[in-house]
Design a protein around this nucleic acid. Structure first.
Lengths: 264, 264
DNA sequence: CGTAGTGTTGAATTGAATCAAGTGTCGTGG
DNA sequence: CCACGACACTTGATTCAATTCAACACTACG
């Protein structure tokens, strides 16, 4: 299942007209290589293998399926599909969303390298949302029944997966607080700071990165309209806290952004 | 630990001046009995023991600590306390909340009998919120390290606890959608319907129950002010969809409430 | 019996949504 | 390589849902 092409970095620079990635540390993680193992994966310190020893990692490797890369817009799964696997992002990014009755979507999450997708399907045995690639991306698919079996054998893995799920729960509750009491500017600042720390987690710049999602995605995620997100961005720019050019963003004053968030 | 008093039902009717519980099926689950086992617990079909066989339930019983009942306002734990246990509500109800920097609280969840509290602390090893009893309540405390150990031994328990956590994740994401795109009326209707199905899950009336929380708690949970919650309640009452008397509520037209929710 | 907490209602204000009109950007096919 | 069309983004003017401010009623408890 996986001696596909290597696809390489054909699209690393997709979307920048300015020669940006030449002057600064990489703005992207790229290797969409399918012939990689957990043991050699650059993300193994923050993904599932964390806390596993060599032989355990090898066992994990056995159950991980590395599919061919996903193009922008390709779906990992759709709402109500039978739950089968969780997915670890290896490169690129994804968004999860639900379609409300009136047809318009609401984004429930964004996923960057090293993060786990699909845990919302565990209980009901079907996915509660749809998940699509925001750019050319690659994925490790982990069939859940096998993950359960292996967790049973490896207490470290069980412990770690409990922790991953607990982390998801804690994160979701922070968002609950964010949405229930923060203003548009506070939400947006918090969102940018969140992205910042997630990028720095995978050794990318915490102050300069490309937004893989549209303003509309951000708005749907934060409970705001596109227009408001746009206005807040230009507002923050005018205050000198950030610098936005299209999808490229630089956080000029992290502390001031933090101050905005903790106002609430 | 746990041959404390039995405390009984001293306060089952706390809060109702109208002789309500005489005329309808019990509005409350009451036994705050500490001398109960998972095997004999009325909630064992929906709490942790689900899917366990007799001998497995017995093993679970061994690690569960049944503390003395909690009075209204008593805390299970506080924000930043070291994470040690998860808790299953046996009777009564609880709320989780965080205090924002400016001092005012934000409710992150309500917990009814059979539901599990404290999973937000698993990843970071400390609780992300404080949790307090909303009324006289009783709890089963399950030390997490022991739950992990036992989960390792009992695949059924591991499977079920993954499901419980997955369910929490799915539920949190529904709230994300609720908060990011529903109007005040839609949120409130959805909240009432949610309570309704959770009460019916523990064999209480799905159409007539006592709200254990204040309007202010509801507002903080739904991202609304007290005044708005109050206005929405009276609005729904005027439309004939519900009947509210203080903390006592009756859902007169569930379908109409559902229609409000799915408008969005 | 009085006081603190809880809940209701009204009037004024406001933050974000909506409506509307544009500009900018990207990918496609000629 | 350029032109075209679709989509993404911005900005302004107006509207509206919910908050805020304010006053008051009810309830529960020591």
């Amino acid at each position: 299942m996986s001696s596909v092409d290597t696809t390489g970095d054909s699209r690393t620079t997709q979307g920048d007209s300015i020669p940006l990635q030449a002057s600064v540390p990489a703005l992207k993680i790229c290797p969409h290589n399918v012939n990689i193992s957990c043991a050699s994966c650059r993300l193994n310190e923050l993904c599932l293998p964390i806390a596993l020893n060599k032989s355990e990692i090898h066992q994990l490797d056995e159950i991980v399926e590395r599919n061919r890369p996903y193009k922008k817009g390709d779906h990992l799964y759709r709402q109500s599909d039978e739950f089968k696997s969780v997915y670890a992002v290896r490169s690129g990014s994804f968004k999860s969303y639900v379609l409300s009755d009136n047809g318009q979507g609401r984004v429930t999450g964004f996923f960057l390298p090293g993060e786990i997708i699909g845990m919302d399907g565990i209980a009901s045995k079907q996915y509660a949302n749809s998940t699509a690639a925001l750019e050319h991306s690659s994925i490790c698919e982990i069939p859940f029944s096998q993950l359960e079996r292996l967790s049973h054998e490896l207490p470290n893995l069980q412990h770690h997966f409990f922790a991953i799920m607990g982390n998801e729960i804690a994160k979701d509750q922070q968002i609950h607080t964010l949405l229930s009491s923060y203003t548009a500017e506070e939400r947006t600042a918090s969102f940018l700071l969140g992205l910042s720390s997630r990028y720095s987690r995978v050794s990318l710049s915490p102050t300069r990165f490309l937004l893989p999602m549209t303003r509309s995605d951000i708005g749907e995620y934060l409970g705001l309209t596109v227009e408001t997100v746009s206005r807040i961005f230009t507002g923050l720019q005018k205050k000198g806290l950030i610098e936005v050019n299209n999808r490229e963003i630089e956080l000029l004053d992290i502390n001031a952004l933090r101050a905005i968030v903790s106002t609430s």
